[in-house]
């Protein structure tokens, strides 16, 4: 990740991500693949197999207490033959205030987890049993990006109709010619 502020001086480390990374490496060394602790969007990349235990640690460890899964997103990367699944976790347990306010560089106290899965077999274990709120976000990510979340009771579409063809936020998704007899005109033909 490059941007103007990064190239000028040594970019500040993000203490929240750094501490989470340290504890994750200590408890589940196999789970962590990669991490970026500087810049505007620091993140920790974990393996698909290690995701669940990493999430449990982030939720339950006394220093972390990430008790809310804010957002689950899927990013299709056809050039790398991968799909990134990004989890943004926030905490309401630790009292806000000074510890967070000191993070002037990035004002949002969140931790981002990334999982990269192959595009032809995009299977990620569910975390809806860790944070119930991730349930609908996982359904939406399945619906629009086509990530399969395993180990959960049901994985149904949420926004699109049940019989909608494909997952529209895949980069190679093509507009269907019609839906139940209603012709669909792709934007470039309008």
């Amino acid at each position: 990740m490059t941007n103007e502020s990064d190239t000028q001086a040594a970019p500040p480390e993000d203490p929240v991500t750094l501490r989470a990374l340290e504890l994750l490496r200590q408890e589940h060394p196999d789970a962590v693949v990669d991490a970026l602790t500087t810049g505007r969007h620091p993140f920790i990349e974990v393996t698909a197999d290690g995701l669940h235990e990493a999430c449990v640690l982030l939720r339950d460890h006394d220093e972390l207490l990430y008790d809310c899964c804010h957002l689950v997103s899927g990013v299709d990367r056809p050039d790398q033959e991968q799909i990134e699944v990004v989890y943004h976790l926030v905490s309401y347990s630790t009292h806000p205030g000074d510890a967070y306010r000191k993070r002037a560089e990035k004002n949002d106290p969140y931790v981002a987890l990334k999982v990269r899965v192959p595009r032809d077999k995009p299977e990620v274990p569910t975390i809806s049993d860790v944070w119930t709120g991730a349930d609908w976000h996982e359904r939406e990510t399945y619906d629009l990006v086509g990530v399969i979340f395993t180990g959960r009771e049901e994985l149904r579409r949420i926004l699109l109709p049940e019989d909608w063809p494909g997952h529209p936020l895949r980069k190679d998704w093509e507009f269907p010619v019609g839906y139940h007899g209603v012709p669909i005109v792709p934007p470039e033909a309008q």
């Binding site: 809310c68 309401y92 009292h95 806000p96 205030g97 967070y100 004002n107 106290p109 709120g133 991730a134």
Partner: peptide, 24 residues
């Protein structure tokens, strides 16, 4: 918190968090 409820609905439950103040 577990369901990701935010805003007035969360503050009404006693969570002292407003992004405007706590992550300005």
């Amino acid at each position: 918190v577990r369901w990701g409820v935010t805003g007035p609905a969360l503050r009404a439950a006693g969570v002292d968090w407003d992004t405007r103040r706590d992550a300005p």
